[in-house]
Amino acid sequence: MARITAGVSTSHVPAIGAAIDLGKTQEPYWAPLFKGYEFSKQWMKENTPDVIFLVYNDHATAFDLNFVPTFAIGCAEEFQPADEGWGRRPVPTVKGHPELAAHIAQSVIQSDFDLTIINKMDVDHGLTVPLSLMFGQPQEWPCRVIPFAVNVVLYPPPSGMRCYQLGKAIRRAVESFDQDLNVQIWGTGGMSHQLQGPRAGLINKEWDNRFLDRLIEEPDELAKMPHIEYVREAGSEGIELVMWLIMRGALDPKVNLVHRFYHVPASNTAVGHLILENPR
């Protein structure tokens, strides 16, 4: 049977991808950020899963305003890194796992979460930057990836509770898959940031760290937080953090904290990162 062994959460700031692609990771501005991922890259080498279920959001790349799916699962064989207007990132093609993705789609829809099935989609920095942070710059990504896109661009996104419950449904789906697969679930985006209007640049270090504490210790309670608190306290784009609750919902109530990192700034954004393992 397939099993979810660990969860990873990380911000997915596009400038981080550019810093990696342009060889700037050792520059004074970026070095402290990448230092926080040194442990993670080593951990990934020792704990490479068969499949990553990667929760992220599209940033007006694959989806324009003609179609805005709340939850969309990528069921294709492969996904190309998107050209977001500056050319494609020089990263490997993302190989999917159509069989597991289709199984999860069918199972989760029958658990009352109405997913949109996507069979052709380019993936933007929301998905490729976390892969680069955790794997560095390999010729090929060392495992399969199922992209799972959540709408957090057009308000309202799904509630934190909806996301948390969806994580639980995804876990049940994975555990009912017959092949022996080691699956990780990643939740990306956040932490506090606002990219628009006169309030742009908002960062809330205290709130972010409290969010990390609560995500680890009391996710049931954290899931009840209304959208307005994310937006008011963590900025209009801080709402991306609901995606971390999908990851957390798919893990055990009690998890082992393997790694925790927080850094300000990456361009306009506060960067947060956790590695959580399900107890064996």
Binding site: L65, V68, V153, L154, Y155, P156, Q196, V231, S236
Partner: peptide, 16 residues
């Protein structure tokens, strides 16, 4: 409820 956040326009269905 987000209408009273300073310097912030929430991209909701009306704005879209």
């Amino acid at each position: 409820p987000y209408a009273d956040i300073p310097g912030t326009t929430i991209f909701d269905a009306d704005q879209a």
